[in-house]
Design a protein around this nucleic acid. Sequence first.
DNA 1: ATAAAATATTAGGTTTGCCTAATAAATATA
DNA 2: TATATTTATTAGGCAAACCTAATATTTTAT
Lengths: 221, 221
Amino acid sequence: MIMFTTSEENYLKAIYNLQQEEDSGVSTSSLAEILNTKAASVTEMVKKLADKKLVHYKKYYGAELTNTGMKQALTVVRKHRLWETFLVQHLGFQWDEVHEVAEQLEHIKSEQLIEAIDKLLGYPTQDPHGDPIPDKNGNLKHKNQQLLSDMEIGSTGIIVGVKDSSPTFLQYLDKEKITLGTAYKLYSKEEFDHALELEINGKPLRVSHKIASNLFVEEKS
Amino acid sequence: MIMFTTSEENYLKAIYNLQQEEDSGVSTSSLAEILNTKAASVTEMVKKLADKKLVHYKKYYGAELTNTGMKQALTVVRKHRLWETFLVQHLGFQWDEVHEVAEQLEHIKSEQLIEAIDKLLGYPTQDPHGDPIPDKNGNLKHKNQQLLSDMEIGSTGIIVGVKDSSPTFLQYLDKEKITLGTAYKLYSKEEFDHALELEINGKPLRVSHKIASNLFVEEKS
DNA sequence: ATAAAATATTAGGTTTGCCTAATAAATATA
DNA sequence: TATATTTATTAGGCAAACCTAATATTTTAT
């Protein structure tokens, strides 16, 4: 059983996350930004990952996970999201407090541990931010979610996830009493700045395009 | 707030543990053995710790924790023992399975996390091996324990801890159904090899000196 | 008290993962 | 299309924490 360093795991996870958005190769600069490091360091590490057959890498193009790399990335993502869920459900953490600690906990090496946490939580399929938790074989249960900013006028449904899960954004949502499961109705969109007029918790609320484009919703059928 | 590397924390904990036994300075070779590293590496690191005022170090003599070093060592020991307790009580680990994982978990940096675990466990004062858990101020509740091998013939009481907590020893105890809280009666000691004749769980049991010298007992008053 | 053995330190390397500065390639702009 | 700008790579270094081999000190045994 091959083992990975914390740094390698962080790169794999970051590539995984970025790969979800862009469909071309993951760029050196985007990795450098996410990983809080410099482009030169990224190039170096990505080459190392390519040597280990964890990513495909083409100079000046970018990196993409191989099947092996994807599998490993998913186990890191799985651990991260299970720990986040544990912190919220069993240790009383708020959803804006879990990320940093989970960044550390995701690197703990013990199959027994993560399986026990999974069991304790009842094999959850979503973390506190609405992100899917891969099962131990790497399978994801994907919801049919859309961005609130992409919905048509008159659309109703519920908030099912956040795209940005930074503390500041989550704290904004707390302030507005928006949680996963909260119902919305989209009244109108402002042409000029693409702000949205919503009904949330029975009250009208105006949100910027930036906010709406970081909220996943599931439309009422 | 000063932060320590995983390696520094491991050295501090190791020095703490060894300091409990010997009362002179902790030797380079004993540290090297415990930390699975070479003497040269230990010398180097101990010097670094001395520069940071975490240990007193005298060449060819050994290392001793300063007050600051002791405080830090105790927080690592606290985390280690709380995690061990958590693994056993909430995740169904056996007492011989917890050490390796706790070695990793003890380095997670989050005051909030360890306080939440402590609270969840009900502020325990002992870990699954009977070792005391420092409270968040570093205070230890010390039992009046003695080694079984040091007891007089006729002594009765209960097992309250293990000195060696290696899986092999713990598995031996499991096999013999010896747990913390088990009552013992010391019948006799063999002159030749210092083996002991005991009554354990209502049945006679002969244990070697090595075993008896790794069991802590509390004598019935 | 001296020699031998054991223990500890120093000197000089290695690896991992990061950095800055210089160069090369790709993309955008005139 | 040629040039400017942005993005990426290479070259050369650095710090942490290891290592081996050589040397120094302390302890043990004769």
